[in-house]
Amino acid sequence: MSQHKITVTVNGQAVTQEVESRLLLVHFIRENLDLTGTHIGCDTTSCGACTISLNGRTVKSCTVFAVQANGGEIETIEGVAQGGQLHPLQEGFWEKHGLQCGYCTPGMIMSAKHLLAHNPDPSEMEIRQAISGNLCRCTGYNKIVEAIQYAAAKLNQPTPEEVPA
């Protein structure tokens, strides 16, 4: 089995490590980097608890090898809040009670972030479809949808510079 030295930018920070070829990206993130916000919920690429962003697209990090991320950019839930400010999605999940046990939440937020980056004003059905690769067992999804709608509305508000004086 081969060992590989990989360099990955994770939440803006470059890290270099030696990894076994079979190391799953999710284990690299959780165990090698101690970023435990990314979770594991299944073996079949079904649940989406391990969803992260790799090179600008969300992927299920249990179904990518760490070595494949070499040279790439990763964003995990730990990188979503910037400068101590919660992201509007994080605010939305909190405001709208979009989580209960919190286990699926990081993956949900990553999927929602990907959606809003590509479709800033999604319909309810588009939101439901966009998070259909992420299973939640607690919330019944209504409030997750509301949380994403909250974030979309907030992100679509004109920034102060755009507001005419």
Binding site: G37, E78, Q90, W94, H97, G102
Partner: peptide, 17 residues
Amino acid sequence: KRKEDPRFIQGKGRYVD
């Protein structure tokens, strides 16, 4: 709003694994 949420929405929950 729930008091427990800030840690979960930032990936700072602490589960057994």
